[in-house]
């Protein structure tokens, strides 16, 4: 029972971490509170579903293609819409992405209705392992693995590479970074694409576990927002660690006090904000 809930928590945490990571990259770099992050998660899942049902393209190519398509869509949206928000207060970016969320979700409900569509687990990941104390479905182990590897790779790229160095500089002081000859507007487009692609990847991974529906991801954003606030709005590490931790904490709360499972993360958020307003891993500017 405990291990089962721990696993469920770890799975949820994997999705939280991927989503929060994308959200933190976008907020850090663009200062945009991307309420549409859950929509891109839904688009990632639908991308995979459409590839399979309309083109016969299976899970493995979709795992790359669908996030890539989401990322490209994100870059197009940044170029045409999001980039107009940078000089305005954060609230306008939030309102714009809220509008995008309503518009895209509405379009998909119109096209596909709200009923969930199943997405099959790929053959290679069917079945599971009996670990003695619990049964571990292979696909769930795979989701945790992909999420951890992607999170680590993203963290590494941002903290340890030349591109990451440039991204961090552009996050901290965009105008000065431009004065060093770095094309920050292009970096912002790229960064938004990466953040959206991470949500798309989470969506593809989620397809076989949940069902694919236009409504998926909507409420995820609320939790993701809490994660990023607790982790520190721009902190990559904070998004990953707190994302995984929240999944697990939620899982444990379900065992010991099921009524509190949905509430516990917001209580944590409240307490963290009281003690460390910049978040656990954030820094005050």
């Amino acid at each position: 029972m405990i291990f089962g809930q721990l696993l469920v928590g770890l799975i949820n945490g994997s999705f939280y971490a991927l989503m929060a990571l994308g959200f933190a990259v976008i907020f850090g770099l663009l200062g945009i509170i991307n309420i549409a992050q859950g929509t891109f998660y839904m688009l990632g899942a639908f991308g995979a579903w459409m590839l399979l049902n309309y083109a016969g393209i299976g899970y493995w190519p979709a795992l790359i293609l669908s996030p890539l398509a989401a990322g490209l869509l994100g870059m197009a949206l940044e170029k045409t819409l999001i980039s107009r928000m940078y000089k305005l207060d954060h609230i306008y970016g939030l309102l714009l992405t809220f509008g995008l969320f309503m518009f895209i979700m509405g379009t998909f409900i119109w096209l596909f209705q709200t009923a969930g569509r199943p997405y099959p687990v790929p053959d290679a990941l069917r079945g599971g392992w009996n670990l003695g104390f619990m049964f571990m479905p292979k696909y769930r182990g795979w989701v945790v693995l992909v999420s951890l590897v992607t999170c680590f790779a993203t963290w590494y790229a941002i903290e340890k590479t030349a591109l990451g160095r440039t991204l961090r500089a552009a996050t901290e002081n965009p105008m000065l970074t431009r004065a060093f000859g770095i094309n920050v507007p292009a970096l912002l487009t790229f960064g938004f694409g990466v953040g959206v692609a991470l949500a798309g990847l989470a969506g593809v991974l989620a397809g076989p576990i949940y069902t694919v529906s236009p409504l998926m991801g909507g409420e995820l954003v609320i939790v993701v927002f809490a994660i990023v606030v607790v982790g520190g709005m721009q902190s990559i590490l904070g998004a990953i660690v707190v994302g995984l931790a929240f999944g697990v904490i939620e899982g444990f709360t379900k065992v010991f006090y099921p009524q509190g499972a949905n509430l516990v993360i917001f209580i944590i958020m409240f307490l963290v904000l009281l003690v460390k307003p910049a978040g656990l891993f954030g820094y005050q500017k």
Binding site: R168, A169, E172, R178, A179, G181, Y283
Partner: peptide
Amino acid sequence: PEKIARHGLGYVPEERGIYATLDVTENLLL
């Protein structure tokens, strides 16, 4: 600004503009 910098300008701002999230070597290599 990025185009202007590429004309061969090196700018040292009054507030120095050292990045807190970059270490010394990273600041130099930026």
